[in-house]
Simulated assay, not measured.
Amino acid sequence: MQAELHEGYRPGCIGRIAQLHATYYAATHGFGVAFEAKVARELADFCTYYQPGRDGLWLVEQGGNVEGSVIIDGSHADTDHAHLRWFITSDAIKGQGMGRRLLQQAIDFVDACGYRSTQLWTFAGLDAARHLYESYGFELVHQSPGNQWGSVVTEQQFVRCNPR
């Protein structure tokens, strides 16, 4: 069954995106309930205040299930940066190029909106994601130890200055 890219909220996507993050990061980095709760809470807040044209939300679905996501939060783009968030793909669609397609949708959106820059927060050790971010012009601008995700990691902020 082929994976398909969809734009916008779909019923169940909040829970599924939180689940994708929780299961992946629990298995790979030992994150627990604090991380899952943070993702679910912040994602639910984003979806509540989502404004088409300012914000972007793209999902990959396969077999009726959400298997990937990326979000652009444009709520602070006028005064700070647009924020790329909740970028993830499941093992079910790895190797199909859907991560690149998701990220391309997000980049096309921020460029079309004319946002001056886009930021994302991640942490050291996610080398495949970092390579993908850097291929789209994101540059590491800050890193420091932090534990906002439930265990100590080297948090990293990447920024992409968007063309005008």
Rank of each mutant, 00 (worst) to 15 (best):
A22W: 08
N147H: 07
K38V: 08
A82M: 07
T89S: 06
A106T: 05
H21G: 12
G68Y: 15
S144M: 04
A22Q: 10
F158A: 08
R116G: 06
E61R: 01
F87T: 07
T154Q: 12
E61L: 04
Y115L: 06
R41M: 05
W58A: 07
F138L: 11
E7P: 07
A128C: 03
Q105K: 15
G53V: 13
F123G: 04
C161M: 06
A77I: 04
V153L: 11
P145Q: 00
L5V: 14
G53N: 10
G146K: 00
A112R: 14
H142P: 00
G99C: 09
G95P: 12
H81M: 02
S90L: 10
A27G: 13
F109Q: 04
Q2C: 03
F46S: 02
E36R: 03
R85W: 05
P52M: 00
H83K: 15
T89W: 08
G56T: 02
R101D: 01
A44C: 01
K38A: 12
L132G: 04
F109E: 07
G114T: 10
A129I: 02
W121A: 03
E42A: 03
Q105N: 13
L59S: 03
F31L: 12
G74Y: 08
D91Q: 14
D78V: 01
E134Q: 15
S144A: 14
P52I: 01
D127F: 09
Q2R: 11
L140A: 02
A34F: 03
L43P: 13
Q96W: 13
G95K: 07
F109S: 05
G97A: 09
S75C: 06
A112L: 12
S144L: 04
A34S: 05
M98G: 01
T154V: 13
G150D: 05
S135I: 10
E4I: 07
L59H: 14
W121S: 02
V66P: 00
R54G: 08
I14L: 07
H142G: 03
L102S: 07
G12T: 08
Y115W: 15
R160Q: 11
Q2T: 14
G146C: 03
L5W: 06
Q2L: 05
C13R: 15
A129L: 04
Q96E: 11
R164Q: 02
G114A: 12
A34C: 10
R116C: 02
S135G: 02
I14D: 11
I93D: 06
D45S: 08
R10D: 11
A106W: 04
L126V: 13
